[in-house]
């Protein structure tokens, strides 16, 4: 089987990989990079357990070949604690899941967290309906979704509060393209839009 050399930047760290063209991105992330936070729950692209953020957009990494992601920036649940919004601890979305009991078995959770992040990056103050729509590609068999919605709302509120505090120094909302995420080799304040702008 032929192979191809690719580069993936995952959670700010750049990796060079040699993969078969048919290797799924989720397998590259889980098995080549040993980042097993993202999961696999189906073989039809329906469950969203494999959701990661690629170049600012939530995608199902089981529906993408690793070679298609060559050169892209990928965020997975493992990178959330290093995100500037995490402030050295849990990211507000992670905190939301813990405080609002947004998980039970935890299997869907990393995908939900990344889907939630993409929702908030795009729209920091989503309505309940927008959150439900935004996570409708992610199945959870345990929670009945109510507390997942609350978890994302919790993060939205918390990021708002942080934003208000930050607003005194220029403001989170105004930092489009102008802030440094703090992750080594990541955006450097330029290429990678953590606030969910439309760089796609």
């Amino acid at each position: 089987m032929s192979t191809k050399d690719i580069t993936l930047t995952v959670n700010g760290e750049t990796h060079s990989l040699t993969v078969e063209p048919r290797m799924l991105l989720i397998h590259a992330i889980r098995e080549e990079l040993d980042l097993t936070g993202s999961h696999i729950g189906c073989d039809t692209g329906n469950c969203g357990a494999c959701t990661v953020v690629k170049d600012g957009e939530a995608i199902k990494s089981c529906l993408t070949f690793a070679v298609q992601a060559d050169g892209s920036e990928i965020e997975t649940v493992e990178g959330m604690e290093d995100h500037p919004d995490a402030d050295g601890g849990l990211h507000p979305i992670q905190e939301g899941f813990e405080q609002e009991h947004g998980l039970q078995c935890g299997y869907c959770t990393p995908g939900m967290i990344m889907a939630g992040k993409a929702i908030l990056d795009e729209n920091p103050n989503p309505t309940e309906e927008e959150i439900r729509e935004g996570i409708s590609g992610n199945l959870c068999r345990c929670t009945g979704y109510q507390n997942i919605v609350k978890s994302i709302q919790y993060a939205s509120d918390k990021l708002d509060e942080n934003g208000e505090v930050a607003a005194a120094d220029g403001g989170r909302a105004e930092t489009d393209g102008g802030f440094t995420c703090g992750v080594e080799n990541c955006c450097g304040g330029t290429g990678f839009d953590h606030t969910g702008g439309d760089n796609e």
Binding site: D34, E98, T109
Partner: peptide, 21 residues
């Protein structure tokens, strides 16, 4: 009480069957 098991699940540190290598 907030759940003791949550931390590993929300940070991607769970250890499910397919994570075992």
């Amino acid at each position: 009480v907030r759940r003791k098991e949550d931390k590993r699940f929300i940070t991607g540190r769970g250890n499910y069957i397919d994570d075992i290598k």
